[in-house]
Design a protein around this nucleic acid. Structure first.
Lengths: 240, 240
DNA sequence: TCGTCAATTATGTCTATACATTATCGGCGA
DNA sequence: TCGCCGATAATGTATAGACATAATTGACGA
C-alpha cells in the first residue's frame, strides 16, 4: 500500500483509536510532535487530523489540543434506492401502473396536511410498482405544481413519477418516516394482500430550500422488501 | 457570516449544485480558474473541492477536471436512538425486562448464523423494552464474549444491554436491516399483541474492524414506533 | 485508417512560512 | 481568596512554489 503520507498518518491514528490504544477523552500528541515523529511539515499532519475530525473520530480544540472523541449518539446512512433500479437489478421486470392522477386545488385539508405550497395546485398521483407484474409497493404522491410545473406534462403511464422527479428536480432537504402498518382495505386491494397483512410504510417529504416539492406515501409488501442502513467503511465485503 | 475562504468557496459551489445551477455530469471550472475567480491560492481552492469530493457531491479526475457527481442512490441519515432516552423524552417511564440470559457455545447453528466469532462463546440476552410498563419492543441479542469479555459480568436486570454496549464498546462498522413482519406467537406474547399484528423489525450487526461484536433483532409494536431519516440542514418542525 | 506514444494539462501531495484565533494558565492586584 | 488579564501554546487559515501522477489529446508512423 503506497498511501500518501497524510493518509498514512490518519490511518495509523485511526487504528490506535479503534483498537483502544487511544481511549476516548485522551489527548493526542500536538501537531508539532507528530510533525517531528513523521518527519513532515505541519500542514501534512494538520490535513490528517482534519480528516479525522471531519469523520468525528477526534475533536480539536484551540490551545488545548486534539482529543479522541467520546462515542456519539450514532446515526447511519440509509440508502434510498430507486425502485426501478432495484427491481431490475434483482433480474425482474419493472412496471409502474398508474391508477389515479388528479389536480388538487389549494386549501383542501389534503393539501394542507402534506405541508406543501399553501397557494398553488397540487398534482396527486397514485399507482403501483410491479416486479414481474407482481405488486411490490403502492404509492400516493402529491407534487407541488408551483415548484415543478413541468410535472403536469408528464404522462407516467409506464415510468414512475419518483424516478422522474429524482432525475429532473434537485432538492436540498428530505425527511423520511418508516413504520410498520397493517394493510388497509385499499392498500390490500392494490397489493393483492389480505387486509391486515404487515406493510412497510414509508413517508417522504422533500424540499428545495423552504419550498415543499413533494410528499409520497408508500406501502411495501412486508414479506418482499426491506431497507438497509450502514455505518462505517462503505461497501466492504465482510471479512476483507 | 464570517466563513473562512475555503468554506465560502465550498458552500457556494454546493449551493450551485443543490439548486440545479450546476447539473450532474457538468464540469466545474479548473482549480486555476477558481483561484483567479476568488483571488486566492490553489491550495485554498483545492481544500474546498476536496471537501466537496469527500461529501460525494463532486468527483475529481486527474487531467480531466472536477465534475458534479451523479447521485446513484440518495442516502439519508437515519437516527438510531437509544430506546431509553427516547422513551424518557416522551415523558414515559423506561424499563428493560430481562427474560433470558444464556451462554451459547461456539459452533452452534445459532452462533454461525449471527456471523460473530466462530471460536468464542456468545452471550444471548432476550428481553422487552417497556414504556410505562407497556411493551414497546422485544429484542434478542447475541454478543461475542471474545470481543466484549466484560459483558459477562453485567446484570442487565433493569438496564438495557444495548445502552450498556453503546457506552462501553466502540465499534467501527454497523449494518441495520429494517422490515415489516407479522408478529409470531412468541413475539406476540412478549409484546402483548395478537399473532399476525404488524411489527417493525430491526436487525443490526456491529463490528470493530473485522471482528463481530453483536447482533440484535428487535420487534417494535407497529402502531407505537417509527424511525426517521433525514437529509440536509433539516430538523424541521412538522408544519413550520 | 488505425494504433501507439509522447506532450499537455489538471489534479494530488508536500514544504516552509506567516499570521490569525482562542482557550488555558499563571500571576498580579483588590 | 477571588477575579481579572495578559502571555502562551495550541490549532486554523492562507500563500507560493515544487514536484508527482495520471488521463486525455493529438501527432506521428505503420
Amino acid at each position: 500500500m503506497n498511501l500518501p503520507l497524510h493518509e498514512k498518518i490518519r490511518s495509523e491514528i485511526e487504528a490506535d483509536i479503534l483498537t483502544g490504544v487511544r481511549t476516548p477523552g485522551s489527548r493526542l500528541p500536538t501537531e508539532h510532535d507528530l510533525m517531528q515523529q513523521y518527519g513532515c511539515s505541519r500542514m501534512t499532519v494538520s490535513k490528517a487530523l482534519s480528516a479525522l475530525a471531519g469523520g468525528g473520530l477526534i475533536e480539536r480544540r484551540k490551545r488545548a489540543g486534539s482529543f479522541v472523541a467520546r462515542p456519539k449518539a450514532h446515526s447511519m446512512m440509509l440508502d434510498i434506492p430507486d425502485l426501478e433500479q432495484e427491481i431490475v437489478q434483482r433480474g425482474q421486470r419493472y412496471r409502474f401502473e398508474l391508477s389515479e392522477r388528479t389536480i388538487v386545488p389549494p386549501g383542501t385539508p389534503q393539501a394542507r396536511e402534506a405541508g406543501l405550497a399553501e397557494e398553488g395546485e397540487l398534482l396527486m398521483i397514485a399507482g403501483v410498482h410491479l416486479a414481474d407484474d407482481v405488486p411490490l409497493a403502492c404509492e400516493l404522491r402529491l407534487v407541488s405544481l408551483a415548484a415543478v410545473p413541468e410535472m403536469a406534462a408528464q404522462p407516467f403511464d409506464d415510468d414512475s413519477p419518483g424516478a422522474w422527479l429524482l432525475k429532473h428536480v434537485p432538492w436540498t432537504e428530505a425527511e423520511t418516516r418508516i413504520a410498520s402498518v397493517a394493510a388497509s382495505t385499499g392498500v390490500a386491494a392494490q397489493l393483492k394482500l389480505s387486509v391486515g397483512a404487515p406493510c412497510l410504510f414509508v413517508e417522504r417529504r422533500t424540499w428545495r430550500g423552504s419550498e415543499g416539492i413533494t410528499q409520497v406515501r408508500q406501502h411495501f409488501v412486508g414479506s418482499a422488501y426491506s431497507l438497509v442502513a450502514r455505518f462505517g467503511p462503505a461497501k466492504r465485503a465482510p471479512g476483507s
